[in-house]
Write a protein that binds this DNA or RNA. Structure first.
Length: 457
RNA sequence: GUAGCCAUAGCUCAGUUGGUUAGAGUAUCAGAUUGUGAUUCUGAGGGUCGUGGGUUCGAGCCCCAUUGGCUACCCCA
């Protein structure tokens, strides 16, 4: 006997959980579809080479790799041995692993666009809702298998796409009752310009990583770490000024303009942010120049959604503009922008805030009692008729004590039971009992469906 | 990958400075009740105390290792 268990960081979803998850997915899907996005699904696994190098060094480590089949075949044992040696040295070997579980939905999408560019009509708008896998150590709000909902537009440089994506976030969160979720935006070009202003464009990554941690470790530690990365006092000072920018969105914009003026990269970024700010309601988004985001491929606008402050949960969504993603697959000139919803974290947040509707269920409406061999034949016939009338129903499969059948109905929250016993059989009648009220009526068998239809409206 | 906390019945947990036969609640099953469910009462099953070693006359309890879970770091949805 083996102990039943599932891999670390994965979960089973009981029916009540599935219903709530579907509630979230349906709300998001509705918004995607009414905004003109088409569905796409891609395989759970991709070629390893498709994924590696796209998410930074840390990201690469978190990709779940799939062991090749047939490694034990003696004919390939030399290949397997040299391949494994490469693995031990920290390199990848196609002879050992050539496929991996998808890490996000954006790279597979870019791969899809590159593969199908000839048949797609641009601007191509797609949404995708599928699980992704990361070999991260699980903890609160972090799973090894989780679901992302992405919407992306490729083949359009227009900033109207950015504006639209803000509205998608807002509409979806409003639909879910997560009105307190905050959408934060920034632009990667400003971070690049900051590095340039510091005279250290090569340190862009170090600078962004450091300032991204401001909230967590505090200003002093950030500046300290910048100094350790080789920035001199003057450069650290520039970063400090950058980080000290506060106020309303427009105040922040004025101050960033002053700080980074004359740098073309910065002016482009500021212009882009302005475009968005002028076209979405003031309270929809918050500018945050500290926002960096980990994924390497972003080049313009970046988004991040934070859970309501009352819940200890980090990011529940994020995204951004990427100019060169399909270039990695040999297709240039297709710019894209997209966002992602973290369904599992949204679920956790909604659960703690008690935001799920209480009547979320697809529970059975009617249970037909099984009162014996002859009676159950009649009951089943009625049951099928009720089902065909669009009312969910089932016959209790075994002719056990009524007590037990009542308890079953009660546990499954089935509101109505229909009893057809020997007496009803001869009278051509049925007993319908409403378990919530305890009321029951006896009626002619041919009135059953219309009665139930009235009741379950 | 690093660190801390935890592991006892299907589930939630007690279990005294180490002491002889490991408990409760809940759930399950059966009966009280031959055609009417939420209560009540009675009874039953269910554990090699995560696993392996060690200390001891004696270990659920102490020590070591290992596996799994949770939390935090790194990073992220």
């Amino acid at each position: 006997m083996i102990k039943p268990a599932i891999p670390q960081g994965t979960r089973d979803f009981a029916s009540s959980v599935v219903l709530k998850r579907q509630y979230i997915l349906n709300a998001i899907r509705d918004v995607f579809e009414t905004t003109g996005y088409e569905p796409l699904e891609t395989p759970a696994m991709e070629l390893l080479e498709t994924l590696t190098g796209k998410y930074g060094d840390e990201g690469d480590k978190l990709i779940f790799k799939i062991l090749n089949n047939g490694l034990s075949d003696p004919a390939h044992s030399e290949k397997a041995k040299t391949g494994f040696q490469k693995i031990l040295e920290g390199k990848n070997s196609d002879d050992i692993t050539s496929r991996a579980l998808r890490y996000d939905l954006t790279i597979p999408f870019a791969r899809f666009v590159a593969m199908n560019r000839g048949t797609l009509h641009f601007p191509f708008k797609r949404y995708q809702m599928q699980p992704v896998w990361r070999a991260d150590r699980p903890q609160k709000g972090r799973y090894r298998e989780f679901t992302q909902c992405d919407a992306d537009v490729v083949g359009s440089h227009s900033l109207w796409n950015e504006v639209e994506l803000v509205h998608i976030y807002r509409n979806a969160f409003d639909a879910l009752g997560l009105t307190e979720a905050t959408i934060t935006i920034n632009n990667r070009k400003l971070l690049a310009a900051l590095a340039l202003k510091c005279g250290a464009p090569s340190l862009l990554t170090q600078i962004t990583i450091a300032i991204d941690k401001l909230d967590k470790i505090g200003l002093d530690k950030v500046l300290e770490s910048l100094a350790q990365n080789g920035l001199n006092d003057e450069q650290v000072n520039i970063v400090q000024t950058y980080l000290s920018i506060t106020g309303s969105n427009s105040e922040k914009m004025d101050r960033i303009s002053a700080l980074l003026q004359g740098i073309p990269e910065a002016e482009k970024g500021i212009e882009e942010l302005h475009f968005i700010l002028e076209r979405v309601p003031e309270h929809f988004v918050t500018i945050d120049f500290k926002l960096a985001r980990g994924l390497d491929y972003y080049t313009g606008t970046i988004y991040e959604v934070k859970a309501p402050a009352s819940v200890q949960m980090g990011s529940i969504g994020g995204g951004g503009r990427y100019d060169n993603l399909t270039e990695l697959f040999g297709v240039e000139g297709i710019s894209g922008v997209g966002i992602s919803f973290g369904v599992d974290r949204i679920y956790d947040v909604m659960e703690t805030l008690n935001l799920f509707p209480s009547d979320l269920n697809t529970h059975l409406k009617v249970l037909f009692f099984n009162m014996g061999e002859v009676e159950s034949a009649q009951a089943f016939e009625c049951c099928v008729a009720v089902q065909r009338a669009g009312i969910s129903a089932m016959l209790y499969p075994d002719a056990v004590k009524m007590d037990k059948q009542f308890k079953y109905a009660q546990k499954r929250l089935i509101p109505y039971v229909v009893i057809i016993g020997s007496q009803e059989l001869t009278d051509k009648k049925v007993v319908v009992k409403h378990l919530n009220t305890g009321n029951q009526v006896t009626l002619p068998i041919n009135e059953l469906i219309s009665h139930l239809q009235n009741q379950t409206k």
